[in-house]
Design a binder for these strands. Sequence first.
RNA 1: GCGCCUAUCGUCUAUCGGUUAGGACCCAAGGUUUUCAUCCUUGUAAGCGGAGUUCGACUCUCCGUAGGCGCGCCA
Length: 445
Amino acid sequence: MSVRVRFAPSPTGNVHIGNIRAAIFNWLFARHNRGRFLLRVEDTDRERSTPEAIRTLLDCMEWLGLDYDEPPVYQSANSIRHLEVAEELLGRGLAYRENKGGGGECVVFRMPTEGRLGFVDLVKGAMRKRAGDTQDFVIVRSNGTPVFHLANVVDDIDMGITHVIRGDDHVENTFKHIELFKALNAPVPHFAHLPMIVNNQGKPYSKRDGAAFVGEFREQGYLPDTIFNFLLLLGWAPGDDREVLTRDEMIEFFALERCKSSAARFDVKKLLWMNGEYIRNKPREEYAREFLARVTAAGLSTEGVDLEGIMEQMQVRTRFYSDIPDNCAYFFTDDYAFDQKAVSKRLLKEGIPELLEKIAGEYQQLDPFTVESTHALLEEMARRQESGMGALVHPVRVAVSGSAEGPGLFEMLVLIGRERVCARLQQVAQRVRNGGFETASAAQD
RNA sequence: GCGCCUAUCGUCUAUCGGUUAGGACCCAAGGUUUUCAUCCUUGUAAGCGGAGUUCGACUCUCCGUAGGCGCGCCA
């Protein structure tokens, strides 16, 4: 029988990482087994299940590449069917009506009281429990609406689900659900329960611990590949030392048997590293697409610059695409920001204006203006004035880029271009002399 | 309280009775007297405690301990 799995979230407007991880594992399991991955929107809570919430859910799935093989099933559309099943159960004496506390009659499903309940969880192994430890439970509310357990099981039956892969918090429900499957003479699917994602204190990871929703990571600039890969590694490992995997590798090696059954901590440091890893390893064309989009969106003109050269320098230094405009605006505009700390440390010193002007003068004459020649010139200068290279390199860097960080200085100079470099050196020299940087910092304080 | 589950470096993990317990993140040092980043090299760091089974247990069993989950007319 071919594999059919489903992701069954209730749309609330946010998609929690623990939740989407269940989707990822389901998706991988389906793809690995050449089965079908289905989406069922459990939208029976009409208050929270707004069209926007559903849209958000669908967006997240698309962003992560979690494509489903059949049109989404909306649980709210099946209420009548759920109720019919409840009637059937009632008729066969497997459920009964009860009136607890005056709210009218609800329908309660009868759990066995004798013997043992149990199932083999594909990740946790044998699960056992005495019958009687699990109480009868409500399947239809006194207001006539079906309860989760009923709806969930009936829909799984109707959708032909063969494997239920979900969060650890559903383990106890499984004992109930299995009895429901049996009562309805339906084949009992296999179950697999995924460990929880926890925070530094070992508590369930929530909004309080930082970004907890897929949308938040997306906004912060994380790549879908990063999130997908990272979440997969929380509770699963291929068995060898690989960690950064392609989607195809994940599909090929995924196995529920390799899932851990203990909770995993969410380590943002590693996530950050992984994002940089993915960006660095992107083909240049793809990086270029993102780079260009961000730069132009920031209102920067790329006219007349060596884009390819700049990107070569920047790709290895990019942790988030969203950082790009701030990190390299100075390549595109003369109106770049100055890092106050760098300015104080490197420019607000005795003799700096003179030094910058001198270098500007020399660079103006230099022919050709290359990485080698600009480098050699400063080396020569350093030798003559018997100072270290640092005394020249740092002020120049801060003057032309406003920052203490960035590509190698001489690569940077060539990319900015001789004219701009010289003009900037002159301008900054003037501004330092006029106290322009000091007032700027004073104004900020 | 009752039930179920879990337990390897700080973190994510490998190991499926015999290993110098491996890798990755983080941190530290070096390559690197122009920064940042990358890259490379090296280093620090682990089997929760106690019994038992066994020639031999991280691995199997039991008892503790700690943590998680569940015990809704929520999903």
